[in-house]
């Protein structure tokens, strides 16, 4: 299998507090990986380290055979290859829906406005938001915002899409619409890395589940293995608490 991102010995500390300890982890092309674990286990920090919103304290992140933590590496270029969907949506408040999906393409990728608009409209249709192109973020519901955020990330046509608890800030009745979009995406063969508390989603959609605890990867494997036959006690305890 082709590796998209390979992480070796990654560590991250905030002051003296060590959040990630010696993480080794690989994402393969076309794979949907869900990261689960209790709050404070380091799963969001791992995701934010991968696209360098947090600077790792040590280790390597290898992308296309290069360690992107090298000083000379162009991190802006690298980030365009990773789409990011945030828990709090973080749509650009000053742009309407269409511009949210266009501004990155035009300013960062250098695409023409016409091309960018075509791409944006394609993905806005995918997430069912094509009728809201002129709406401002403040006029949308949480679920709609998150769908636009997904379209914005897709418009950059990244190699991997990172989701940081995409449904945690949503009202319960809006979770479904976002998960459905994510399921559809998973079936298209997109490489996805999802930090989530939605166990049913992880079970149904992911190719591989990673369970994190206290800054380390405690256990990883197929959904069947993790959810039905976990080998570790702490995995069992966590699942007992959440399911």
């Amino acid at each position: 299998m082709e590796k998209v991102i390979e992480i070796q010995h990654l560590s991250k500390s905030f002051g003296t507090h060590e959040v990630l300890k010696d993480i080794d982890f690989t994402v393969n092309k076309g794979e949907v990986v869900c990261i689960i674990g209790s709050s404070g286990s380091g799963k969001s920090t791992l995701l934010r380290c991968i696209n360098l919103l947090e600077r790792p304290s040590g280790g390597m992140i290898i992308y296309n055979g290069e360690n992107i933590l090298d000083e000379k590496h162009d991190i802006h270029q690298y980030r365009t290859k990773l789409g990011m969907v945030f828990q709090q949506f973080n749509l650009f408040n000053n742009h309407n829906v269409l511009n949210n999906c266009i501004v990155g393409q035009v300013k960062v990728l250098g695409r023409s406005k016409e091309d960018a608009k075509k791409v944006a409209m394609k993905y806005l249709k995918n997430v069912g938001m094509e009728k809201y192109v002129n709406a401002k973020p403040s006029q949308l519901s949480g679920g709609q915002k998150q769908r636009v955020a997904i379209a914005r990330a897709l418009s950059m046509e990244p190699d991997v899409l990172l989701f940081d608890e995409p449904t945690s800030a949503l009202d319960p009745e809006m979770v479904g619409e976002v998960l459905k979009v994510m399921k559809d995406l998973a079936h298209t063969g997109l490489t996805m890395l999802v930090v989530t508390h939605e166990m049913a989603f992880a079970k149904e959609v992911s190719d591989r589940v990673v369970f994190m605890d206290k800054g380390v990867i405690a256990e990883e494997g197929t959904p069947e293995l993790i959810f039905n036959n976990p080998t570790q006690d702490r995995t069992r305890e966590f699942l007992k608490r959440t399911l």
């Binding site: 696209n51 919103l53 802006h76 270029q77 690298y78 980030r79 365009t80 990773l82 789409g83 990011m84 945030f86 709090q88 949506f89 973080n90 749509l91 650009f92 408040n93 501004v103 990155g104 300013k107 960062v108 990728l109 955020a149 914005r152 990330a153 950059m156």
Partner: peptide
């Protein structure tokens, strides 16, 4: 301005000026 706005901009690859 909410930190998330900066992060979202960085996540699509924008530099500080952009």
């Amino acid at each position: 301005i909410d930190k998330g706005q900066f992060e979202a901009a960085q996540a699509v690859g924008m530099n500080h000026v952009q």
